[in-house]
Nucleic acid binder design. Structure first.
Lengths: 189, 189
DNA sequence: GAATATACGGAGCAGTGTTCCGTTTGGCAA
DNA sequence: TTGCCAAACGGAACACTGCTCCGTATATTC
């Protein structure tokens, strides 16, 4: 056990198909939402049903693979904002804006998440792993500066996620960003 | 046009089946969630597929019919709370608690809402019609007392709805009521 | 006791997720 | 180069669901 290079490299066609699936999924997610039929994604990638399930056993696996680097970007922006903003709370605002923008542009992302408990866990895992530490640091800084009350990072992260999930339906009379602004006001000490 | 008693009364078997469907739906919603298959509800009521669709063309119609009186109760509690609470903001807190309790006990209610745009409109219509006026009054009173900033009732109503919708999945580390408490703190002036 | 509008039931169609297995193909050894 | 075989593929097939449609049954009326 242990060493990474392990048994055998993936076959060339397998690598090619995985790439094709990622590209196809990204395109279809944009045009049809993350709930798009599996068949549609497979067709777009020019592969069969079996292939898509072999590479990405669950829909969440595919979603995570497609969006991973965007989540990474969001995570990496955290420390920079903390360093550049005029206060930790300002950094918090800006970082939350980033996160919200990511969520609302992925139509149906959070909603899709909600449908099956397993997919929930997978996608949630990504957020927890990449974003929670970042938010925790920002909140700690703001807390240390006496700008906010004590609130668990997970609590805030998920609140934002849920609010954005609900806001995926367009409605001129509802502004999710306002809700989040009010929520941030609420945690201000 | 106009007069209500109108053409002819419904047939006795139709009335009976509608009642049976409401009872069956209420039971199935509790055990299987509001997403329960139509066939299941029909079977529970001992009627055919056609009958359920004739009485309740969309799932949302059935949901609204099942929960209407609970929503009414919530609406009617508003003025009473406003009169008895020690301040309009206290009344707001209490009324929101009522609403949240209603939402979280109806597993999958808001989530089901989210799936189809039409159902969304129907269920939303009920909330808008019954609850929005009540919340508007409470907010106006709190605003007049200088306890809160100006925020549209619809904005708050929907924010709460979305937060509860997301919170339907049980998670010991997340507390939707805390999020809502923070949100209320946020609108406090 | 007919006649008729009303209501019923469930078969059937269409769309989707998921599995399973016969077929193809890439990589490697001879 | 050729032959082998594990790896990978493709899509038919199954299960489940929402929804419609129409032949049948029945409540109501005269």
């Amino acid at each position: 056990m242990g060493a990474g290079e392990s048994t055998t490299a993936k076959r060339a066609d397998a690598r090619r198909n995985e790439k094709a699936l990622l590209d196809a999924a990204a395109a279809v997610f944009v045009s049809d939402g993350v709930d798009a039929p599996v068949r549609r994604i497979a067709a777009e990638a020019g592969v069969g049903m079996g292939t898509i399930y072999r590479h990405f056993p669950t829909r969440a696996d595919l979603v995570v693979a497609v969006y991973r680097h965007q989540v990474d970007a969001c995570a990496e922006a955290g420390p920079a904002l903390l360093a550049s903003a005029e206060s930790p709370f300002a950094a918090l605002r800006q970082w939350v804006d980033l996160f919200v923008d990511f969520l609302v542009t992925k139509h149906g992302l959070a909603a899709a998440t909600r449908n099956d408990p397993d997919g929930f866990a997978t996608l949630h895992g990504l957020f927890l792993e990449r974003l929670l530490p970042v938010l925790t640091d920002i909140l700690a800084a703001a807390r240390a500066a006496g700008e906010i009350v004590d609130v668990p990072a997970y609590q805030l992260l998920r609140a934002i996620g849920d609010i954005c999930a609900g806001a995926e339906r367009v409605d001129p009379d509802y502004d999710a960003k306002l809700t989040i602004r009010l929520l941030l006001d609420g945690i201000r000490g």
